[in-house]
Amino acid sequence: MTSERPAPTATPRQLRRWRQYLADERAEAAVYRELAERRSGEERQILLALAEAEGRHEAHWLALLGDRVGRPRPVALRTRILTLLARGFGSVFVLALAQRAEARSPYERDEDATETMAADEAIHGEVVRGLAARGRERLSGTFRAAVFGANDGLVSNLALVLGIGATGVSPQTVLFTGIAGLLAGALSMGAGEYVSVRSQRELLDASRPDPEAQSALPHLDVDANELALVYRARGMGEAAAAEHAARVLATLHLDSDDVEASGVDPHEALGSAWGAALSSFCFFASGALIPVLPYLLGASGVAAVVIAASLVGVALLGTGAIVGLLSGASPLRRALRQLGIGLGAAGATYLLGLLFGTTIA
């Protein structure tokens, strides 16, 4: 229950906290309304319901503050970023950020918030997780190829350039080696992604029910009910298969179980073979170009190594943070993990180059 009058014993610190909560609730409701404007159907209704729930929380803090609302407080930085992204994009990135924001709700530890409000925030996180999951699945095919392509290009070509450079060869040799690694890796990644996605799509097609089987339904022996065997082959028990087959025969509509409960077709989640191949090629090439840049610009020796490693480090932090955002995890932790793995692999190759070569000029 919300209070009708401000608490008489409210301290200045409490008032500041209540005002901050009020500002944040208003901003979060605005985020969900902005997202709803770019959605339709069920997703729109869900987002509007979330905005309405944030409005109830807003009313709680208004009731506690009473005539002490004061000047509007600035909203938290993450909420401002969410609002801007929702207005500009309305994408899965915004939902992923909203999921993290809901998970960080302080209401469970705040005695001035009700248990209902704390429970609301926990459930809101799961609701947003479900909405974001749809976008993640639609994005997963091409996004996977892009992220893995960029990361592989960064790490593999940095390792190649540092390893060759550590042997003491000329900067021109390192440059040409890096360019060769870029082209060979990009072509290999593109071809590999095409074959991989194409093969997966063909396997899925082979598992789809044959549309022509629909025409056989009116002629089936209802008593023998051969259709039940179809559902038993898909994993149903004998009784459940017979019951399901009877319903299908009653409607004469052969259903398909190849669409997941999320409503995303597995083919859509995979993406197109050409899209994955092109994405992988371009992102590998763009990642692999970064370690070569210092040599293209005339740098050599230790300076080129430091510049290349620094540029790749920044790029690895960026790709790691993006993966963290989309997965609803900590962007900083994912960024540091990506950085550690990438530079660790390149460093090992560099040490091998020193071991088998001479020295950097």
Score class of each variant (00 low, 15 high):
F283P: 00
A269R: 02
R232L: 13
V302R: 05
V222Q: 14
L220C: 02
S310E: 11
N225P: 02
L254F: 14
R232E: 15
S310G: 13
L249A: 09
H253Q: 15
L296Y: 12
A228V: 01
S256N: 12
A276C: 07
W274L: 14
L270R: 01
V306C: 08
R234A: 12
G263S: 09
G237E: 11
L317A: 13
L317H: 01
V230I: 11
E238H: 12
R247K: 13
A224I: 14
C282W: 03
V259N: 05
P291K: 05
D258Q: 14
G275K: 06
L249F: 06
S279H: 03
G235T: 10
E226L: 13
Y231K: 06
L252W: 06
A250Q: 10
L296M: 15
A241Y: 10
L289T: 03
S279A: 13
L252P: 01
L296W: 09
L229C: 04
A309R: 01
G235H: 11
A224C: 09
A239D: 14
G237L: 11
V314M: 13
G235F: 12
L293Y: 05
G318M: 10
H253P: 00
R247E: 15
A261N: 11
G318C: 09
H219A: 12
L311T: 02
P291M: 12
H219Y: 13
A224Q: 15
L252R: 14
A245G: 09
L316Y: 01
D265W: 03
G318E: 08
G263M: 04
F283M: 11
V248T: 07
L289C: 01
A304M: 10
L249C: 09
L229H: 11
G298K: 07
A299T: 04
A224Y: 15
V264C: 11
I307L: 15
A239Q: 14
L311E: 09
V292K: 04
I307R: 06
S286Q: 01
S286N: 03
S310C: 11
A277P: 00
G313N: 08
I290E: 03
V292Q: 06
P291S: 12
R234G: 04
F283L: 14
A269I: 04
G235P: 00
E260W: 07
S286V: 06
P291R: 11
L293E: 03
L229R: 15
L293S: 02
S256R: 11
D255Y: 14
A277R: 01
A242M: 12
G298F: 11
R247V: 04
A288Y: 04
A308R: 02
V230F: 13
L289F: 09
A245N: 08
V259S: 06
A309M: 05
L249V: 02
P266C: 07
V312F: 01
A288H: 07
V292T: 10
S256Y: 10
G301Q: 09
A303N: 06
T319F: 09
L220S: 04
